[in-house]
Design a protein around this nucleic acid. Structure first.
Length: 591
RNA sequence: GGGGGUGUAGCUCAGUUGGUUAGAGCGCUGGCCUGUCACGCCAGAGGCCGCGGGUUCGAGUCCCGUCACUCCCGCCA
């Protein structure tokens, strides 16, 4: 017989009754009846109940073995009597009589409870991740992730995409997020950077003539974490296609995403992903990642408040502010309105005006100030009725949109109006090519500098830069940005011109993007692509509120790996090899 | 960098208006229990109430500071 096991802990059934078997695994739980002990033995595959009574030689060993110790059990498979069958276990019709018992590895008192569905504190979970991962839900999440990635690979290959690996040590790029830098031993004073995404490589793969590329690609960005953003590193389904327009990319990606979501989740999915222009999304949803599960939209009511009796808004509108109205279904009470107002203050806004509609009339300070006629206009514009409320965000357009957007989601959540059993996908399209930097007042790329402007060279030469749209798109699901992509700019002259508008001379392009600009001089196919975030896809399908739940060994919010104790100090000898010297950290008061 | 939340036994948590000896479940140690499957019963050990200062006759509880974890804003082409 094998030294450790003849079967796994899920395999045995009535068919094996009478066989001598050997199982190895962890002690999940024990039930000690004094003269009779039950041991639930757990491995990756399942649970098998093992049993021993005091007449047996190894009884005391079994009785004293601690939970989570790794043990090997040898014995006969017994059929359970009808009254003792456990129908909630696949192996519940049998049990194994412990005839030989050995402890392969004893466990200390546990820092977290493995056989519990309750999460321990985050720090404990991360420090003892190998214990946390034994628990059912984390274990299942990681298996789900592996299966999703496997399914994605299969789907991509079936569509004629080929998986390539791209470099991990590459050049720092001036745009975008903060880079992780790696000192170059052979080049004192110089650094590699970890790729924020294989962006330039995948475009160069197209220029190299490979037509359809994909990769489950690690991406590295030194930016702060969020619940849906792991610090440091994450994975994208990176893909790129030659000779395509925007709709071709959608047609390729949509079935893959829908297929994966349908394969691994029971939630409903619309048959077609809606297309929402960026400007419309900002207006109706207050952001570029709309949660379409919230069953109401924001309306612009600026003109109703212009010259109205509500002087605070009227004055702000005169100065260029806008007013956005957020419907509040069943929010027609003073208590809810007050709660929204203090919520808005906690979000950094001065507050949130409101009108309450009830018994055929409009109530509240705003309603009084603007009069019944305008209050009715607002009610119709917002599409609400008796018992509802309307909340107002009055500020410069970006700020008002943002506050209204957050209020919309909050109302949806608070009022229980979000369908928890659906995935609502949307393509957000027509992103602006450029935007105004609010601090410097300069024009800059609003998204990806490698995107093709809609209208090409002609648009760059003749239009107001802020009016130019790009062939740039996001895929959004339930208010989470799943992916971002674009039709790329493959024309050197158009690229120079675009960078020129953003304030960069040709020489900057030549210096910072030598590969791209060189490549585009030797016959570059028109191409485009997208890069859905793997971690976020798994997080949505697993129905987890935090991205750490779908990552094997995640870092904490401060980008530390508590289990491995990374980052860590290194000695001066290692630094000297790299021509690096430590300097004291100087903390100024302004820090 | 800024704001919010949390921090009490190995783990998950309770702890009233500031008032005697800080509790429960799980786990751990010991005892009882031969059909449990979150087994049951009895007993015990285990506490710098995150840390430091302050107010007070008296602080787990109030105040200030600080640290840790977390969520959000900034940031994330």
């Amino acid at each position: 017989m094998h030294a450790y096991r003849s079967h796994t802990c899920v395999e045995l059934s009535e068919a094996n009754v009478g066989e001598e078997v050997r199982l190895s695994g962890w002690i999940n739980r024990k039930r000690d009846h004094g003269q009779l002990v039950f041991v639930d033995l757990r491995d990756h595959y399942g649970l098998t109940q093992c049993v021993i009574d005091s007449s047996d030689a190894c009884f005391e060993m079994v009785e004293s073995a601690r939970l989570e110790s790794v043990v090997t059990v040898t014995g006969e498979v017994l059929k359970r009597s009808d009254e003792t069958i456990n129908t909630s276990l696949p192996t519940g019709h049998i049990e194994v009589r412990i005839e030989k018992f050995s402890v392969q590895s004893a466990a200390d008192t546990l820092p977290l409870q493995v056989n519990s569905d309750e999460n321990s504190g985050e720090e404990t979970r991360l420090r003892y991740r190998f214990l946390d991962l034994r628990r059912t839900r984390p274990h299942d999440n990681i298996m789900l992730r592996a299966q999703i990635i496997q399914s994605i690979r299969g789907r991509m290959v079936a569509l004629g995409f080929t998986e390539f690996q791209t470099p991990i040590l590459t050049a720092s790029s001036p745009e975008g997020a903060r880079d992780f830098l790696v000192p170059a031993r052979l080049h004192p004073g110089k650094f590699y950077a970890l790729p924020q995404a294989p962006q330039q490589f995948k475009q160069l793969i197209m220029v190299s003539g490979f037509d359809r590329y994909f990769q489950i690609a690690p991406c590295f960005r030194d930016e702060d974490s969020r619940a849906d953003r792991s610090p440091g590193e994450f994975y994208q389904l990176d893909l790129e296609m030659s000779f395509v327009e925007q709709q071709d990319v959608f047609d390729a990606v949509e079935p893959v995403i829908r297929g994966v979501f349908e394969e691994f989740s029971d939630k409903s999915i619309d048959s077609e992903f809606v297309h929402i222009p960026y400007a419309e999304s900002m207006l109706k949803y207050g952001n570029d990642k709309p949660d379409l599960r919230v069953p109401f939209e924001i309306t612009d009511v600026t003109e109703i408040f212009r010259d109205s009796g509500f002087s605070i808004f009227a004055k702000n509108v005169e100065k260029g502010a806008v007013v956005r109205a957020v419907p509040g279904p069943k929010c027609g009470s003073r208590a809810i309105a007050d709660r929204m107002n203090s919520w808005a203050q906690s979000e950094g806004a001065p507050g949130m005006g409101y009108i309450i509609y009830g018994d055929g009339e409009a109530r509240g300070p705003v309603a009084k100030a603007v009069g019944a006629e305008k209050a009715e206009e607002i009610r119709v514009a917002a599409g609400v009725g008796d018992g509802d409320a309307v909340f107002f965000a009055c500020a410069p357009a970006n700020e008002a949109a943002s506050l209204a957007g957050r209020a919309r989601v909050k109302i949806g959540e608070d009022q229980g109006l979000i369908d928890q059993d659906s995935f609502k996908f949307a393509w957000v399209v027509d992103f602006p090519m450029f935007e105004l930097d609010e601090v410097t007042g300069k024009i800059d790329f609003s998204h990806n500098p490698f995107s093709m402007p809609q209208g090409g060279m002609e648009a760059l030469e003749n239009m107001d830069p802020l009016e130019i749209k790009a062939w740039q798109y996001d895929l959004v699901c339930n208010g989470i940005e799943l992916s971002s992509g674009a039709i790329r700019n493959h024309l050197p002259e158009v690229m120079y011109k675009a960078f020129e508008i953003a304030g960069y001379e040709n020489s900057v392009v030549d210096e910072k993007f030598p590969a791209m600009i060189n490549a585009f001089r030797f016959g570059a196919p028109p191409h485009g692509g997208i890069a859905p975030g793997i971690d976020r896809i798994v997080m949505l399908i697993a129905n987890e509120p935090n991205i750490r739940e779908v990552i094997l060994f995640p870092m904490n919010g401060k980008a530390e790996d508590l289990m491995m104790a990374a980052p860590s100090a290194v000695d001066d000898v290692a630094l000297a090899d790299l021509y690096i010297r430590r300097v004291p950290v100087i903390k100024s008061k302004s820090d």
